[in-house]
């Protein structure tokens, strides 16, 4: 278990992880919406979205300049910026912060790229430990079907082309995602993920997430957690 920093709240941090096509983004969006309707102040943060490093990432990707190490570090920079400027202050203010991907994405992807496992785990020691971490477990073929069916424009780094796994971008993507999946699977216990069966219907996955949130956080908004109206913040499963 990496030694993340404890979230001293009063807000709550909920994160989702899983390979591309596992459906995690759909689920965290639905969960955020549900929490918001129950009066919670909800904030959302997405992997690789900090405006501070956007240009640098774009430059590196366009010119294919990244090495596994600099790729890992620019994502850590992005994460640090979101952590320092957004996630941490909002948690201190009492918001529920929902994050689409977290440090675990780096633990899986960067290691597949050949970055040292212990090094990347140490790198993210400034991260806060999530209060809830959901992992969307899905067979590789199911996820690939969702991605490859939906859009055909796979990108160079997204497909792991920098690893030289295959000249065919789709084949490279398959191998790359397969290896990332294996990394995630080996992390489940170590990281204490709540595993969601992502082959089930969207509705039943969402119900399971809500049940877990209710079980972990209780049905009444905890003290210090921000919302619009205490009465409205009573949760109904």
């Amino acid at each position: 278990m990496p030694s993340f920093l404890p979230n001293r709240g009063p807000g709550r941090l909920i994160i989702v992880e899983g390979i591309d096509g596992s459906g995690k983004s759909t689920q965290i969006a639905l969960l955020s919406q549900w929490l918001r309707l129950r009066g919670f102040a909800v904030a959302f943060s997405e992997w690789n979205s900090s405006p501070l490093v956007k240009e640098t990432t774009r430059r590196g990707k366009k010119k294919e300049m990244f090495t596994p190490t600099s790729f890992s570090l620019i994502h850590a920079t992005d994460f640090a910026d979101r952590m320092e400027r957004y996630i941490l202050p909002l948690l201190k203010a009492g918001a529920v912060v929902c994050a689409d991907r977290y440090a675990y994405t780096a633990f899986a992807r960067d290691v597949v790229r050949g970055v040292d496992r212990a090094w990347v785990r140490n790198l993210y020691r400034f991260a806060l430990k999530p209060d809830l971490a959901f992992y969307f477990k899905v067979p590789l073929e199911t996820a690939l079907g969702r991605i490859l069916g939906g859009r055909n424009a796979l990108k160079y780094y997204e497909a792991g082309m920098d690893l030289g796994l295959s000249r065919n971008i789709e084949e490279s993507f398959r191998i790359f995602q397969g290896r990332i999946l294996a990394e995630y699977e080996s992390m489940i216990e170590e990281m204490g993920f709540h595993v969601i069966d992502a082959t089930k219907s969207i509705e039943s996955q969402q119900q399971e997430m809500r049940n877990i949130v209710l079980r972990e956080f209780g049905t009444v908004r905890p003290p210090g957690v921000l919302g619009v109206d205490l009465n409205a913040a009573r949760l109904h499963a």
Partner: peptide, 26 residues
């Protein structure tokens, strides 16, 4: 890769200490 980004980040007033460290490491 990051020289220009660092200079731009330093023009603003929101560069946190961990972010700065990470950017320099990149």
């Amino acid at each position: 890769l990051a020289g220009k980004g660092i200079k731009e980040a330093k023009q603003g007033n929101t560069l946190g200490p961990v972010t700065m460290t990470m950017y320099y490491l990149t």
